[in-house]
Each structure stands twice: as structure tokens, then as C-alpha cells.
Design a protein around this nucleic acid. Sequence first.
DNA 1: CGGTTGTTTGAGGACGTTCAAGTACTGTGG
DNA 2: CCACAGTACTTGAACGTCCTCAAACAACCG
Lengths: 240, 240
Amino acid sequence: MREEDRALLRQSILFRDLPADGLARVCENAFMQTLPKGALLFEQGTMPEVLHVILSGRVALMGELPEEAAAVVEFFNAGDALIVPAVVLDLEYLLSAQVVAEARILMIQVALFRHCLNTDIALAAAATRLLSVHWRRLIEQIKHLKLLSATRRLAAYLLGNAPMESGSARFRFTEERRLLATRLGMTPESLSRAFARLREQGVATEGAWIEIRDAARLRAYVDSGGTVSPEAPAKSPGRA
Amino acid sequence: MREEDRALLRQSILFRDLPADGLARVCENAFMQTLPKGALLFEQGTMPEVLHVILSGRVALMGELPEEAAAVVEFFNAGDALIVPAVVLDLEYLLSAQVVAEARILMIQVALFRHCLNTDIALAAAATRLLSVHWRRLIEQIKHLKLLSATRRLAAYLLGNAPMESGSARFRFTEERRLLATRLGMTPESLSRAFARLREQGVATEGAWIEIRDAARLRAYVDSGGTVSPEAPAKSPGRA
DNA sequence: CGGTTGTTTGAGGACGTTCAAGTACTGTGG
DNA sequence: CCACAGTACTTGAACGTCCTCAAACAACCG
């Protein structure tokens, strides 16, 4: 393993607290792969053969149901592992994984990983932390899907992914609109209209760049039920 | 601890594989409580003080957002623990927990549980399994919310909670409609209409009882996008 | 019982989707 | 460099699902 890869591994929740020998043990026979945008890591319905650890890049987990187009359930970044539950339980994947930004992936043999989970306390504890972090992200998403309108969901997502907590910022936002729309539970058309509505809340878009002029104001928009605005009296409650 | 409680503990994912001494250690100073329907176990935004393990009964995890009514994120039953992620990460609850059917709850001190997680490999491994099972439930729910109509979501939920895989069955279904509606991401009115539409798919409701005349047919309805037989041959025993 | 709460049904309306067209962006070859 | 095709995104109009509001009905409980 290259030294820079080892450094990247040290940033993952799963491995950052692992002593060197434990890391070496779980990574035995593991291999590294750099995959281009569009590459399919695995498909829903198949059995996991390796545990994927994202060292860099970005991966979308997508779910599909009969007679329906696929929808992104969540995006994952450097430091995340995919998909621990399927590997732990030795069950088929409930999701497919597709690279959305060129990614460097470490692939760990599932049998070895399961063995280490049952013998290495540091790894097992780290796995509970990783799963816990993911759990909370899914919970927030479900709350948003059930309680917020499309526009408020977008605003909440932007706030959650902006590099700052308050004030203003301009940042790159490379998500394809088409995929982002399904992540947020709407169509690309609705996403486009949601962005349009957020313009009057100080959200400007310019290609892959997004500017939030006042995060506190946008937060107030989300928290007020979308009733706050320069001069928009329209009441637009979420799905309650 | 009473002997029957110990037996119930042995059915929980978290403790079923734990040797007796490990179980005794994590349960030190733990206490048991029987709580009536309506009791609040904890509130969103507060810090966990104990880990709740459901020995019997039923608990709803509910999320709320500013300016919105609360929505049930998921129901949990005997054998489940609440909420491991908040306890593991020592972060505020993202959800509130309310008893929906009289429940016997074991309460474990969080500091002790975290300590055992970091020292007892069997417990840590069990925790990854429990979190993994929950993870998959949340993923399925998100897929349903994003890809299925209200009526299909109800049908899929019924199938997932029916006591059989195929054929017909009549079973008690004690969920309050109001709560079930929010679990499914719709209003009580929409839920009522969804049940009405499922009548022609062989779903009969009678107070707290539900009858599915042909699970395979209902499954076909879900998988076909709801386009199957608006008016069906009154009864076709076996496959549709 | 009557009051309260929960569920069902109806009518109307809002949000989001679908369908369709137009516009911007990307990469390729002339 | 520009023409061009292909794709993605945006905008518009019509529709449909689901929500809101309101009332009737049923069930529960003191």
C-alpha cells in the first residue's frame, strides 16, 4: 500500500483509531482501485464480495424498485465504507453503488473483515461509530422527506453541505442536478424550480458553483415553514 | 433481574450471543421499568442518559422539525435497543421515543454501555449487527418514500409486516391510523383512502384486524406500479 | 350517556409530476 | 476556432396525487 493511501485510511472513521497491526491484519490481501466517474461498484440484489472503503472521490448509493427509476439514497465521500450492513449480515445489497467523482477505493475481503470484526475490539467499536454516523444521516433524511416541502428540503440540504455554519459562502457543488433531485426525493424539474424559489432567499447558482448569501436567513426560511421571504405572503406548508 | 426478563433479553439481537458474565457486566445497575401506552422515553434534542432495551411492547420513534407536526420514523419492538447511535456517539437524540403498546424497558447506564462496547468484543459485534439490521430497515423506507405512491407504500408496509410471505392471512394490526400515516409519510386522510383502494386488491380491514386475501397478488400490485386490475376477478385463489 | 378523540368521506386547492419545448453546456471533428 | 451532436438543465402548461378543510360517523372513556 502506498504511503499516501495509508494516510487517507487514517482519515476514515473505521480505521483512524486502529493500531498499525490491526490495520495490517484487516487489510491483508486488500487491493486498491481507482475508478472513473460512472463506474459501478456493485449492484442491488447481489452479494457483497468486498468491503469498499472510499479513500477519495465520491460515490452514490442508489436504490431501485420494480417499475421505477433508480433514486439516490445518499452520497458518500472519502472516509466512508460501503456497505457495512450488507457485509456484516452477509445479505444481498439493498442498493447499487456508482462512482460520481473519480474515486480511489480500497477493497477488503468480506470474510476477513467479518473475522476481524469478531476478534478486533478496536475495529468493532469503530464499526459501531461508523454505522451510528450513517444512521443519523438517514434519520435526518427521513425526517426531511416526511416533513418538508421540496424547496425546504433543498434549502436544508444546501445548509447541511455548505462549508460554513453562518454568514455567506461560495462553494463548488459538483452534484449532477439529475442525481441530486432523486437524492432529495423530487424530479429534476422540481429541483430546478426549487432553486429558482431559493433565489429570493439569497441562494445563487452558477454552473457548478453555489452561493449562499446569508446562511442564517436560509435557516430561518427552512425553520419558518417557508413563510419567510422578502415579500412572498404565500403559505406553503410541508407535508404534515 | 427476574428470570422471565432474562429470557426476554436473550431474544434481543444485542444480548442473545453474549456470555453470561458479559451480560451481567453491561447490566450492572441497569433497571427495569414497565411503561404504559403514551409514556415518553426521551425527547429529541436531549442527551441520552440510559440505553433503552425493549423487552416487550412497542415504541415509536418520532421526529419533529420546526413548524411541523411530528412524524413517526419507525416503530420498534421487543428485542430492539434505543437509540444506539446517540449513545455510541454521545450526541443529542434526533428523535423522541413514545410507548405505543405497554412496554417493559431495560435501562442501561450509557457510560457503562460505552465502556463495555470498547472492551467486550461480543457486545461490540452484536451492536454492529443490530445497527446493520436497523440500517437496512431505514434504507427500505427511504426507497419507498422516494419511489412509491402513497397506496403502494401502504401495500408494501402491510406485506412487510404480515405474518406470512404468501397466501392469505388475517392478523391483528394495532397501529393507530394517525401514527401509521406519519410512518408512511402521508396524512390520516390519505391513509384511509389508500386502504380503500387496497380493498379491491384483496385487503380487508375490520377495526384492529387486517386481512390480506392473496399476498402474491398484493405484491404484484406493488411491483406493477399500481396498474394491476382496477377491478379484479372477485377471487382467484392462488397466483393472480 | 354526552364529551372527546380518532377515523372516514367529500369538496376544493396546492404542490409536484408529466409532457413538451426551449436553452445552455460538453466534447468532438471539420 | 467554430459547427455540430449529444446531453443536461430550465421553463412552461396541463394534469394528478396528495393535502387541507370541513363534516359525518364511530369508538372510547369518564
